[in-house]
Design a protein around this nucleic acid. Structure first.
Lengths: 184, 184
DNA sequence: ATGGTTAGTGATTGAGCACTAACTTCAGTG
DNA sequence: CACTGAAGTTAGTGCTCAATCACTAACCAT
């Protein structure tokens, strides 16, 4: 019931939409579900944003932004193995604190494929640009080695998938990931 | 117009559904789109399958099955680095030949999260079991080293994401992946 | 031919959805 | 205190979609 400025409302819509889109993807999420989570009537969303697509877009952008900032902050003043460790820890923390952001990323990647198939290349361009910014953000602290950067990102993507699939912590599917201990 | 046995039709529905679900995910794909691709009326799908969900399930199962068989065949009679190379090559080939299967996998992973959120753990169990079968399938040929297995899978997941995002071959986003050459 | 089974369609329905239009409530200001 | 503009709602529209029903067309025994 608390009245808010439009800007503040838009912000809380993005938060709510992250959770909802993370679960159901673009098509599996109704604007009504988002509105309910915000605590506002559904039609009001269309005063804050021009349409559902715009909400998804804003949410996706925010998600990339946050992830990049997270890595940048974790790597702050660190290099090489130390940076890798700090960024890895930050990622693990982010997963347990707000897995939505991570799931939203996956939804975003798949949404690109759908958009491209329908002739919309703009969204894809934006996401790819975001990915490359992420790439560069971790590339330098990791010592500017393409192989190391790729390995780090690959582990991240695997973690995303394992989380999506709902493997509980400690399951043997997680073997070989942890703090670089490896064993049979 | 060619009449087919119900079993043959079910098969072609699975093929068509793989393509459609890969693009749009569960919610972004209409049964009409699948029917159109099969070349059959939309209501008839509901004679072949009890519902949309059943079509998705059958498609997902087939997808996992095919992937596992692909790796098993590629690794046939090989071990260690040789097996890794053969399986990697098979994966690359599968991507260029039928990227739908790979995208369908991603859609599947995300569908698990949605299903679990709605209290359906059955689907998740099935997908996780499929993943572990895949895990074991590549684990042995790779020398039964958990770290190597995980690294292999991680690269696969990264490839999936890059394909989904639509990075063209040769883009620097692919750096550090190729045939294990690494450079700055 | 005929009686029965299996493949397949057209018409329809009811629910859910994105989005619009018109109205209401309230905080701040002259 | 009246006025205004921004925050927010209620009611409604047109569309899409999964699923059902009643029906037709082709195949296969005897």
């Amino acid at each position: 019931m608390a009245r808010m400025s439009a800007e503040e409302r838009r912000e809380s819509v993005i938060q709510a939409a992250t959770t909802e889109f993370a679960r159901g993807g673009y098509h599996g999420t109704s604007t009504e579900a988002i509105a309910r989570r915000v605590g506002v009537s559904q039609p009001y969303l269309f005063r804050l944003f021009p349409g559902k697509k715009a909400i998804f877009l804003a949410t996706a952008e925010r998600c990339v932004e946050d992830t990049i900032r997270m890595f940048a902050e974790a790597a702050q003043g660190r290099e090489g193995e130390e940076a890798r460790h700090a960024m890895g820890a930050a990622y693990i923390e982010a997963i347990s604190e707000q897995p939505e952001r991570l799931m939203m990323q996956m939804q975003m990647y798949l949404a690109v494929a759908a958009a491209e198939a329908e002739g919309d290349h703009e969204f894809g361009e934006a996401v790819r640009a975001g990915w490359m910014r992420l790439w560069d953000t971790i590339h330098l602290p990791l010592g500017a080695d393409a192989h190391d950067t790729t390995t780090f990102l690959a582990q991240g993507m695997l973690i995303n998938c394992l989380v999506a699939m709902g493997f509980p912590a400690g399951h043997r599917a997680w073997a070989g990931l942890g703090p670089s201990e490896s064993s049979d």
